[in-house]
Design a protein around this nucleic acid. Structure first.
Lengths: 221, 221
DNA sequence: CGCGTCATTGATGTGCATCAAGTGGTGTGG
DNA sequence: CCACACCACTTGATGCACATCAATGACGCG
């Protein structure tokens, strides 16, 4: 959250985060097509967002953890453009977007903060596009794991150990791969001593090797 | 641009678009890593944006035409996160972002407009992610062509004819395919009488067929 | 006119999807 | 507390879509 605010400004911002909401594992935080009112700051838990085509194909477009913001896609059109589903019991701060805009008129740093958050989402999606468009299966998984552990580490968790909150199928959907391919890549990494996989518990033994794999850069023009 | 403004508000907004800049074909509008100051509204011309990994891989992340906004990725970090290159001689309105934020504090509708534009970019990227993650070559090309012609049509151009401003390789890069695959897909569409391709001039003879191809939905789970 | 760039088309290879069988962990009801 | 069913996962065998390699053709520009 933005720094260097007066107490008056802080009061304003407090009004935003007044309402909280608990979401059970497997439940929707919001669904594509439903009216957009608020964005959400994840307090605890873990979510996935997924987009759907007219013809029923769908794909995981991101995983979100505590401290991250979800729902920005709804601003345009006043309707949510993706589904958000809790992968574990979670709690979010409900932040009505019209309130945010109103307070942003008075608190300049909040306005800028909102812009940064939206820009960050654009940049994040850019890197997903890059991943999907130009990386091979193992490179994708390596990039995914490094990204995940880096975000967890920034939140005070271990730099090497993590619990995957999603299934292999959901990882595959996010990475544009089939679950079998994800599974095989995990096994290969494990064989090579790069990671230790026990169910959804993962230990990264050799992060440097993962970075090398991610940057294979051999083939693609 | 936002509607229903007072003349005073319009004056404010006029201050934004005072500066224009011409970009020659092949030149950068901005480069990844350079300081971010402004976003740009394309007045005339055509651009591509491309993202790059540390190891030198790069990919086209979008094509932008007149009336579209470019540069939103730079807000976070105050550095551009992608390259923007003109595919033909172009002209843009330079809109200093700090000015936008300043005026947004006074003109509520402008603030909301900015949010919508950023949200639209997020939604657009979501659909690119969906395309890259779950569609086959011909489906991708069909979706690409339909999207392109739809945007051109919204700008008063033909619903069926267009000139491709980019090479096959750039299309391929955007779609996560090799140029040969793009070329073959074009030839296949032409054989089937769905389109007429003469170099970069394209005529869509059967838009419905393209929509069907895009929504093939047969295989993928 | 000749060269460079872009595009087409064919032949071959390969990475991942698909299909299929089997394992292990978890939760439920007897 | 155990038996059963279910689901997530692993692993192997096979096939196919697209990449890769290579040769040729069509523009456009100096």
């Amino acid at each position: 959250m933005p720094m260097g605010l007066s107490t008056h400004e802080l009061d304003k911002i407090d009004q935003l985060v007044a309402v909280r909401r608990k979401i059970k594992r497997g439940d929707f935080l919001f669904q594509s097509g439903t009216p957009f009112k608020s964005i959400f700051a994840i307090r605890t838990g873990f979510f996935k967002t997924s987009v759907t085509t007219d013809d029923g194909r769908d794909q995981v477009s991101g995983f979100q953890m505590a401290g991250e913001i979800i729902g920005l896609d709804g601003i345009m059109n006043d309707r949510h453009a993706c589904d958000a589903i809790a992968l574990e019991d979670s709690e979010v701060c409900v932040m009505p977007f019209d309130r945010i805009e109103q307070i942003s008129l008075e608190v300049k740093s909040l306005q800028h903060h909102v812009h940064k958050i939206m820009s960050r989402e654009i940049v994040r999606e850019n890197s997903v596009i890059l991943l999907l468009g130009s990386m091979k299966a193992e490179e994708r998984l390596a990039a995914f794991l490094l990204n995940l552990v880096q975000r967890l580490h920034a939140r005070g968790f271990s730099q090497y150990e993590l619990v995957l909150r999603m299934t292999r199928e959901e990882i595959g959907s996010f990475l544009g791969l089939k679950l079998e391919t994800v599974s095989r890549a995990f096994s290969k990494f494990a064989d090579e001593g790069i990671v230790e996989v026990k169910q959804r518990n993962l230990k990264i033994l050799n992060p440097e090797a993962l970075k090398l794999i991610m940057n294979a850069q051999d083939h693609c023009s």
